[in-house]
Design a binder for these strands. Structure first.
Lengths: 234, 234
DNA sequence: AAACGTTTCATACAATTGTTTTAATCGCTG
DNA sequence: CAGCGATTAAAACAATTGTATGAAACGTTT
């Protein structure tokens, strides 16, 4: 049945994400899928081709277009600040949200941090698309005189923060003490990063304030002081 | 001679960093080192033990104590702002500076992003030390009322930005157009991230301004506008 | 029911893996 | 030089890898 191909692809995605390409043996994959060893070559032609297919199956996670879908269809008519906030939110929710199977982001992370020659060309485009979407948003957010390379640096600072949480993976669980764990929901992280970035860009609008009166229980402290507003002098 | 052990360790570090644990075969390592295959087991007892040793040899890169060495010996007497700036600088310079052999950070990055059971315990401590050093600095930088979890989030935002550059590796070379390449020296990145973080924390002091009149040619634009100072209104 | 293409299975294959073994070589002390 | 421990070398080890083979089983059509 055609189902075997699907089961094989799923099992491959999970095991590749969990162990990486080399440590995930063809036999283990087939065992998990409940199919014969020969199925890999029958349906995909080889282990490497299966890996590429698994990555491709996991990649559609990152659709920067989803950012624009949140508002009007036409990107040029959206509020750039809202766009940036949405970009951060969607990126993080896609990566850390529990609606997305965890193996997908793990696999993508692996490919991002240690690109496989096989998926290289395919993956390059994906990342570039994503990054340029962010650049496009920043383009309209940052004052006129700011040179191009600074927009790139800002964009990298943003994706750096966003990708660190899923990338750090197990390390995070060691770093963050259990008592603070409830403060590290996806929602909390989204808000922190957005606030951090907005503050860095001096874009403090009604945005961050609106959160304090928001529906969710995210702002559990009654009213925290702004980040560095009145830091102790040295 | 005892030299074989050293050559073996070096070759192992380079190959492990380049290809990862599995793709770096014991024979390839020995070939590069110019020693016999049996040398691995003779000197280290196995491939895995050799890997652990290679990681340990690369790990001393991250010495957060170096931050305090820059100023007075006593951490409590240093200017916290300067400490934070130094922390960012030292971390990035250690990771991206050309004085450090590139295989070391590559290897550490691999271990950080995909921890090997073998080095796990050893590595955990290293990361924790580093992170808590940063937390200690933030402790004295951030206003009193700020709850603990926000300091953690801020710290993660900082290390997220710093680690992204070396972690992204090859991808960065695809993302950044050649024309902008000269603006992405270690020094440029150090300054950007410091400025970005300081701005986010509303710590804009004489710090970032002093750079503009600094010795280096980093601020090549005559006077760029501050990041988001007068962004276009929506 | 017969014949067909498709899919599944058990098995075998060659290649590579990390590791062991055994002998040869070196450097030194007696 | 003889003798000895430390080191190196070549070859062989068993185990695992990805893949290929050919026959059995399946469902569908004739």
């Amino acid at each position: 049945m055609e189902d075997t191909r699907g089961r094989l692809l799923l099992a491959a995605g999970e095991l590749f994400a969990e162990r990486g390409f080399d440590r995930a043996s063809a036999r283990d994959i087939c065992d998990r899928a409940g199919v014969n060893v020969a199925a890999i070559n029958y349906y995909f032609g080889g282990k490497e081709a299966l890996y590429v297919e698994a990555v491709k199956a996991a990649a559609p996670l990152f659709r920067p277009e989803a950012v624009f879908d949140r508002q009007k269809r036409d990107p040029d008519q959206c509020d750039p600040k809202q766009l940036l906030a949405d970009y951060i939110r969607i990126m993080l929710e896609h990566m850390m949200g529990q609606d997305t199977p965890s193996w997908k982001i793990k696999l993508i992370m692996r490919e991002m941090l240690d690109p496989t020659p096989a998926c290289d060309a395919f993956f390059r485009q994906h990342v570039l698309n994503n990054f340029h979407a962010l650049l496009g948003i920043l383009e309209r957010l940052v004052p006129e005189g700011v040179p191009e390379h600074r927009k790139y640096q800002i964009a990298l600072s943003i994706v750096g923060q966003c990708t660190y949480y899923p990338a750090a993976g197990r390390l995070l669980e060691e770093i963050i003490p259990d008592s603070l764990r409830p403060q590290f929901t996806v929602e909390h992280i989204v808000r922190h990063i957005t606030e951090f970035v907005f503050s860095a860009l001096s874009l403090t609008s009604s945005f961050v304030d609106q959160w304090r009166t928001d529906d969710s229980d995210c702002g559990d402290r009654k009213k925290e002081p702004a980040l560095g507003q009145n830091a102790k002098a040295d």
